[in-house]
Amino acid sequence: MKYKQYGANSILVEWPQIIDKSILNDILTFKSKLEKANILGIESLNHAYASLIIIFNEGCFNFSSEVHLLKEIYQSSDISKKISHTLWKIPVCYHESFGIDLKVLSKGKQITVDEIIKKHTKPIYTIFFIGFLPGFLYLGGLDKALYAPRRKTPRLKIEKGAVAIGGEQTGVYPNESPGGWNIIGNSPIHFFDVLKTEPCFAKAGDSLRFYSITLEEFSDIKTLVNAGVYQIESEVIHG
């Protein structure tokens, strides 16, 4: 592991630069130890696939002494017994009115639209982190058969809730935004809601599975979501 100074008052901790669930778990354990240690001067903790940034208060930052402290905390034994996470079940409507790139994908890959949907709803995806846009989940676990290059020209407007594939990744656009991924469906769920104390229902380390719904079910769920009474299906996974 490497500790690098990043700017005047931040430290970047780097793991081997690969996408791997065991690295994610190590980062999350370190992060929770840091949160528990309640270190004076830490203003923000944020991680991606294989790195963690720790932003300190400008006033009291000393790189070498902070690194010393961080290493000590990293090596301390993990007292938490938390070995459970949440599996979220996310409804997606793969109807062609939402999945505007399904036909092109199906043609290019020589597999039917139904097979694409089957392969997309089968895996349990790991949530590695949230980035890019508020509430955008970086998911690991896409079926190799569904890898698809990003569009050459990004679209200026992608609908909120769009479910998409970009390269080796799949994800849901939490809000309307420009984007270059291939759109295969839409989810009626809010992935980012500032009115809630926890604006994202999911967090890094949780997992997620998509299931296919009809247009009618989509509109029913959307009504419930907008009324603030929809409960996302989930289960707690131990171990």
Binding site: S44, L45, I130, P134, G135, F192, P199, C200
Partner: peptide, 11 residues
């Protein structure tokens, strides 16, 4: 908005 970056929220 320092502290909300783990939700993907810009500073």
């Amino acid at each position: 908005r320092l502290g909300a970056q783990h939700h993907g929220v810009p500073i």
